[in-house]
Write a protein that binds this DNA or RNA. Structure first.
Lengths: 225, 225
DNA sequence: CGCGTAGTTGACACTATTCAATGTCTGTGG
DNA sequence: CCACAGACATTGAATAGTGTCAACTACGCG
């Protein structure tokens, strides 16, 4: 049922240095990287694969996830344009990554970055910062998972809101199922919570994927960023 | 009600280079560090403090935690002898840290380590490995929080079991409340789950702090390490 | 021995899940 | 342009699993 993997540059999964004919783009940390395209629901990398590359989202959105043995899926994080992912400090990925929607990314060779970082203090610093941010994200996510369904959804929307354009409606790239799997809830509970929040005037829902934050009740909630 | 902070070396919270008269000890990454002692429930560092030091547990146990605005406490991790903590890749701590029981640690200046890491590839590698482990810990913890109470407790015990001596009874240094705050459950649910697991022959509980794993039902559970 | 802390147990309330049905949106073909 | 299929989302009713509140027990320490 999954859209077929579609990658713009080549048939093999990852770019090689041969592909220099392709326009190259300013990527994470000012490094030159290869642009790539992923179709909705296509895999970007798999869990336990060697983490050869590091990615920066240009457009679209990415989810990382793990599947539990009972079949449930836990989404670890969503990455939006500008975000860097696939760099987990270790030699192998700790999650799989998929495109939530049609997504463009810039890809950089991890090893090359790491080597460069040994003599460029600034780059090393940026890598540590990116990792620190990743740790903070995990921590925030953890805090969400011990809250009520309402607080989880509010926390999620709050996070999305401040990661996208301020004071504007949030355009959610992900489905209710994605949100449910991120928040450790069922799709029904997420849906019910959305409608409930709308009825309470906390949000409005012009369409199911578009959310406007009405009430500043948001601010009283959870930890600020 | 909290035991008064008791630190063996000095009255101020952290060691200074003046304290060279004190015996020094092989610390994390083979670096020389200062030994310190913390009484049960005493603070090792606070959230948002500058992360000046990095710690390795010698004996005892440490918990890191955050307090939510509703007063609940979320424990992020427990650190046992040999574990390194307080190094979160950023300039400030993302959690507070306390001694679970009377605890001895070795303290190393973070800045010094980072500087040394720029020209010692091996040390740099060890720092990245430690960070990767920390990320993996967060991820595992996240997976636990979306499970049932029973699976959370089993997952927790499983984790504790393979972090301490194999094939032996686990001696839990932390209270039921600590476990509850780690697993996002109430103390009552944790307690009930323990007795339930004992009745089902999965564990035995010679004392409330000592757990013996009976059944290999453990193995069918959650992700292995 | 008695006190205080930690842990266990019970009854009940409440929240989220489950299972099932209905509703909505979008793209495709008639 | 409309009708239809399929995916996505919402809603309802019944149930299961935790939380809450309160009482009780066990243990360690003076």
């Amino acid at each position: 049922m999954q859209t077929q993997n579609t990658i713009s540059l080549e048939s093999s999964r990852h770019p090689t240095s041969i592909l220099t004919r392709q326009a190259r783009v300013e990527g994470p940390f000012g490094m030159i990287g290869m642009p790539m395209r992923f179709a909705r629901n296509s895999e970007i990398y798999g869990e336990d694969e060697a983490s050869e590359y590091l990615y920066q989202v240009v457009s679209g959105a990415v989810r990382t996830y793990k599947i539990l043995e009972d079949g449930r899926r836990q989404i670890g994080a969503f990455y939006l344009p500008g975000d860097i992912f696939g760099f987990e400090a270790g030699e192998t990925h700790i999650s799989s990554a998929e495109a939530v929607s049609e997504t463009r990314v810039i890809v950089v060779k991890r090893a090359a970055l790491m080597v460069r970082a040994t003599h460029e203090k600034d780059l090393a610093r940026q890598l540590w910062d990116a990792t620190a941010q990743e740790l903070r994200r995990f921590q925030e996510h953890l805090m969400l998972l011990i809250c009520s369904a309402e607080d989880r959804v509010i926390g999620f929307l709050h996070d999305m809101a401040h990661r996208t354009v301020k004071n504007a409606a949030i355009e959610l790239p992900m489905s209710r199922q994605d949100i449910a799997d991120y928040l450790g809830l069922t799709i029904e509970t997420v849906s019910r919570t959305f409608t409930q929040l709308e009825q309470n005037g906390v949000i409005s829902l012009p369409t199911s994927r578009r959310v406007e934050l009405r009430n500043r009740a948001m601010s009283n909630r959870i930890m600020a960023a």
